[in-house]
């Protein structure tokens, strides 16, 4: 465990909590893509099946349980508790265009052709693109609430910090997981355009709105 990995995990947790609190406090999930949230919940469920097979550390297991519970709670809030506020008309990204290719790819390119490993690979690939419905929704409505942009910032920062963690681990531990690295790079790149808007607009106190 190095500082970048820890900061990445914390940043990921902050993102998840920000979103949960935003929905809970405002009693509304307006502007949030339920589809992205379903994808993230699927990512956690398929990746953390190893909770039942191996024990790495108390930290590892507790974080996995927190991520899974929070992501499922978020999906519940969007589709059940605050369904009336869910902006489904703007959440029109075709998720099958992500899930089908990602599913196929995880069968073709993986570390080991076993059910657990294929599901892990699926979760890694799916996570890299799971934010697309949310970004698509923002591009459709042309704006995002400031709190939603903070959520996206921490979510993007998390994978960026993991990239630094992987460079660190390569040099100091000889650790190298090509699947995670390539997917993590794709994931981080998808946030770049958003990062630019976040720094140039949101951090200067302006609302994130896109030119028509």
């Amino acid at each position: 465990m190095n500082i970048f990995r820890l900061a990445g995990d914390v940043s990921h947790l902050v993102a998840i909590i920000i979103l949960l609190l935003k929905i809970w406090k405002t009693r509304s999930c307006a502007g949030i893509s339920g589809k992205s949230q379903i994808l993230f919940a699927s990512v956690f469920v398929t990746r953390y099946l190893d909770l039942f097979t191996i024990f790495i550390s108390l930290y590892n297991s507790s974080m996995k349980i927190i991520y899974i519970s929070c992501s499922i709670a978020t999906v519940y809030l969007v589709y059940f508790k605050f369904k009336a506020t869910y902006d489904g008309n703007h959440d029109t990204f075709r998720v099958e265009f992500l899930v089908v290719p990602v599913g196929g790819l995880s069968f073709l390119v993986n570390h080991d052709f076993s059910p657990m490993e294929i599901l892990w690979t699926f979760s890694i690939y799916l996570e890299s693109v799971a934010i697309l419905p949310q970004l698509f929704m923002i591009s459709k409505t042309g704006e995002a609430e400031t709190i939603t942009t903070h959520y996206l910032f921490f979510l993007g920062l998390y994978r960026g910090l993991y990239l630094i963690n992987w460079i660190w681990r390569y040099y100091f531990e000889g650790f190298f997981d090509l699947i995670a690295i390539v997917a993590g790079l794709v994931q981080t790149v998808l946030y770049c355009d958003f990062f630019y808007l976040y720094v140039t607009k949101v951090l200067k106190g302006k609302k994130l709105s896109l030119p028509a």
């Binding site: 990746r47 190893d50 570390h111 963690n165 997981d177």
Partner: peptide
């Protein structure tokens, strides 16, 4: 092709 026995990251 590096094979990791288990995944220790989140």
């Amino acid at each position: 092709w590096p094979f990791t026995q288990y995944h220790d990251e989140l």
